[in-house]
Design a protein around this nucleic acid. Structure first.
Lengths: 340, 340
DNA sequence: TATTGGCAGTCGGATACAGGGAGTGCTAAA
DNA sequence: TTTAGCACTCCCTGTATCCGACTGCCAATA
């Protein structure tokens, strides 16, 4: 059984180790924290914590460092997340408030979060599967190449080149454009995709082939066959913590570049939408990120599907600060932008 | 004066050092290369090369490593770039041939180049300043918010949110849309920008304010106020060569993320469009990249402005291979895609 | 029972030192 | 111009040693 003071000792160990990167001993604890007890007592508590596998000693006679399990308990104890300072809140507002379009907003967001947390920041590009089709535009870029542009009422624009076998003249193009808008306009992306697929057979033979290609193309687009993208910032922060990755940092960087891994990880964290979720060390082992921790939170921008942002760093990180920053920025995106 | 054989010795030193990361001595050279002379003779040549500051000795009595100047001479001697293997050419075709849109093509390109060269690859997103305006679309996303979508005949789509003070109803919106298309349609981006600016005064008072905002917005867009973007891949390759950066790799990573730096660097390399340009070490010192080399080449995709792709790595890199890969991919983009 | 002081034991890290090895620079000879 | 030989320099590595930090345990104490 771990006593209340033992947990306080664990907190002290986590804080000191995060700050110094050095195993922390009993003497250090009594010096830097105001426990009313002696070092020997702390040692007894540390023996308990080690029994519970919350801390470990890298070498026989050295200070202790938290285990993944120790970090987990530490984070779970953090019932109340320390709010950001006024200056930090101000930074969020001024930094994000000026954004003109979604791309820039997200770009600023990742940069901001990486600066606030000193970690690598990631934001998931919000998809818009639930948005509706406002307009379909066709542009002939070559005799047998049509550019299909899909405009959603959320403002999102998707484009795709369609190859057709027979050239399409301007007149036919106009007819096709009208037909496509008639069928797809106003529908949600998913609906439009199925509607277009069903439309293929009931069309003028001469253009069946064209429509077929177009419908398939648009359907693909609408289904968001292309997986959501990620925006990343602060890679230098990750490399700066290289010493915290005993087993080469290369695997981590590769996993970040292989965005699919992170997207799947985000997918698994989608449980509670309005709180900050933390996954620590080995909890991410199945993603090849067994030495990293991820702190993330959901956010929702009006007209878009719900999405996630977060940070990725070594297990030895300032969870309190990371959670506060991630939560604050996610809330800003959801609330402040949602109100305007 | 550097003799012909001295240059051969320089080549040998560069090749061996690039391969082994270890200073190379005279004995190693006679063992691994078929000079018909003894180690002592090589030493004399090495003394010459050191005199010319083409090589240097890290320690008094150790092998030699090439200086930046040495790499420069080595690269300039590479009159003929070794062509890629058939397998590599095949890889380019199959890997890039399947791309559906420009984004994916560029994404595949950077990944391919980073794999071929084992370096960090960068591609500049081709701008379209010389393209013409095909269509301007306005979408009301909120009473006082208009989404402006600019469609170019090259297929590029740019979007921007415009804030206006007074609400705009559907009827006025349609009129505005017609007017904007009338003025801007068919013009190049640059022309459209000036034309729109000039149009502001000659419009119905009630909508002057709206048009003003829109014109300014579109003008900004057309001028490509937003700098060209970069796509990056293979960061892991860069980190893997960390040992080749005596002065911390962090600055390099920061410079990469700060895309402006690379864009300016690319801008300075734009001299010869159809050949591969190499900048070595201190030649990039003014960009904070004094320990890195950049190999890049221009390419041109139909309907787009000319643009660049390249790789960034330590001065100790396989220049021959990097130049061959960069040139081959750039040519593929320009030629093969241009023909189709 | 919980806490404390003391003390022996353990291990890592820093320091000092010697020996081996790789490589150069120089000189004299071919 | 090239070559062989040789002395010299310096790095690297392994070894021995010392120092310091910390733990773990035990007996005493509140």
């Amino acid at each position: 059984m771990v006593s209340e003071r033992s947990l306080a000792v664990l907190r002290a160990i986590v804080q000191d180790y995060v700050a110094s990167r050095e195993p922390v001993g009993s003497k250090t604890i009594v010096e830097r924290h105001s426990f009313g007890v002696s070092a020997a007592t702390i040692r007894n508590d540390m023996a308990l914590l080690e029994e519970e596998e919350l801390i470990a000693a890298p070498h026989t006679s050295s200070g202790r460092i938290p285990t993944d399990k120790g970090y987990r308990v530490f984070v779970d104890q953090l019932t109340e997340i320390r709010p950001l300072t006024a200056a930090q809140r101000q930074a969020i507002e001024t930094f994000l408030g000026e954004s003109s379009d979604l791309d820039e907003l997200l770009a600023r967001t990742v940069r901001l979060v990486s600066q606030l947390t000193k970690q690598l920041a990631v934001v998931q590009y919000p998809s818009f599967a639930s948005a509706r089709v406002r307009h379909v535009e066709l542009v002939s870029v070559a005799p047998t190449r049509l550019l299909c542009i899909l405009i959603a009422d959320s403002g999102q624009v998707e484009q795709r080149i369609a190859e057709v076998e027979h050239p399409v003249d301007d007149e036919a193009l106009a007819a096709l454009r009208a037909r496509l808008n008639e069928v797809a306009g106003g529908r949600t992306m998913a609906d439009a995709a199925t509607a277009l697929s069903g439309e293929i057979d009931s069309v003028d033979r001469r253009h069946a082939e064209v429509l077929h290609t177009l419908a398939a193309t648009l359907a693909d687009q609408a289904r968001m066959q292309r997986p959501d993208r990620l925006m990343v910032a602060g890679a230098a922060n990750l490399v700066a913590t290289e010493q915290d990755f005993p087993g080469s940092i290369l695997g981590v960087i590769e996993a970040i570049e292989e965005q699919v891994v992170l997207l799947r990880l985000f997918g698994e964290m989608a449980s509670d939408e309005h709180s900050v979720v933390v996954r620590i060390g080995r909890e991410n082992a199945s993603f090849g990120l067994g030495e990293t921790s991820v702190v993330s939170s959901a956010f929702e921008i009006p007209g878009r599907d719900i999405s996630r942002l977060g940070i990725v760093g070594p297990t030895r990180m300032d969870y309190s600060n990371s959670m506060a920053a991630v939560r604050a920025v996610a809330r800003y995106l959801s609330r402040t932008l949602g109100e305007s």
